[in-house]
């Protein structure tokens, strides 16, 4: 059974180029946690335990940039672009196993010359699920790149480094079914089937055919229940009338016959109104078919249990 997604963070598995870049970065500032992990796997020791954990806000396009973008992409058709493109970032869900296997086999087939000098490259850091970056890390790399570019130290851009990186979408947690529940379900299903079978074969088995009818409970049940409900209604109306007609006289002393009659009718009327509501409710329930619950053969009289 699939459980809900707990952590909605989209993660990025860095490509070789990105991993190399992360290991190369020289900075005295504190690094984000994931970056430190990748660097440590790359053989770089970190003395300071300081971790960069600030949230980096989203960059917004300036008015001029927006104009440029508009002028470039105005005449383009999305589907045509998308169909003609070479892959820029592979986007697929993590449960797309086939895809991952393909990528992994691609990575394995990489010629050794492209392998980095890092110690970590032997253990393939990009195949390990531990070395994942989140969006804030990517933004942090972007910031660093911007500083480097400003200082003319390099001319890399984040979108170039991200080529061949994977975007890993969060995966549903798999919740194993509780064995206790499973056992219970099996038991209940068996009971249900047993009951159905019993119902079906009731006419065939002569020993069982008349058994339920012997009990008083069954006979009472077979009397029309609606009649009972109506009878209850009549009884309560009569007793209501009796209360108004006789009971009030006992309570208050001598009363006029007309007044007693009037009070009796009033009481009966009020009770009848209330009773009609319950009657309607009960009769409504009887519209639904009542499942005949046959009794188990070994216990022909469960009411005596």
């Amino acid at each position: 059974m699939k459980g809900p997604i707990q952590d909605v963070q989209v993660q990025i598995r860095p490509s070789k180029t990105l991993t190399e870049f992360i290991c190369k970065v020289k900075t005295s500032e504190p690094l984000p946690e994931n970056i430190i992990r990748i660097r440590e796997a790359g053989g770089i020791k970190h003395e300071s335990k300081e971790v960069y954990d600030k949230y980096i806000p989203k960059k917004v396009l300036s008015e001029k940039q927006r104009e440029t973008l508009k002028s470039i992409s105005s005449g383009e058709d999305f589907n045509k672009l998308f169909g003609s493109t070479s892959k820029f970032i592979d986007v697929f869900t993590a449960d797309d196993e086939e895809n991952i296997e393909n990528i992994e086999s691609e990575l394995k087939e990489d010629p050794p010359s492209t392998k980095t000098k890092l110690n970590a490259s032997e253990t393939k850091p990009n195949n390990k699920p531990d070395f994942l970056l989140n969006i804030n890390d990517i933004r942090w790399i972007d910031q660093i790149l911007e500083k480097h570019r400003a200082a003319n130290e390099c001319d890399d851009y984040i979108h170039e480094l991200l080529i061949d990186s994977e975007v890993i979408l969060p995966k549903n947690q798999f919740i194993p079914r509780n064995p206790e529940l499973e056992a219970r379900c099996v038991k209940l299903r068996e009971q249900q089937q047993e009951r159905e079978y019993r119902n079906m074969t009731k006419d065939v088995d002569a020993t069982r055919q008349h058994l339920p009818e012997d009990t008083i409970a069954y006979q009472i049940k077979t009397i029309n229940r609606q009649l009972i409900a109506v009878f209850q209604f009549v009884v309560s109306v009569i007793t209501g009338f009796a209360f108004g007609f006789i009971g009030l006289e006992y309570m208050l002393g001598e009363l006029d016959f007309g007044f007693r009659l009037f009070m009796g009718v009033m009481c009966a009327l009020i009770i009848a109104l209330a009773e009609i509501y319950f009657l309607a409710k009960k009769l409504n329930e009887y519209d639904e078919p009542i499942e005949d619950i046959p009794m188990p053969a070994r216990k022909p009289r469960p009411h005596q249990d």
Binding site: K58, K59, L61, Q65, R139, D142, H159
Partner: peptide, 10 residues
């Protein structure tokens, strides 16, 4: 621009 859009996309 590409940088900004890539980050935006993520």
């Amino acid at each position: 621009l590409l940088d900004i859009l890539t980050l935006d996309m993520l």
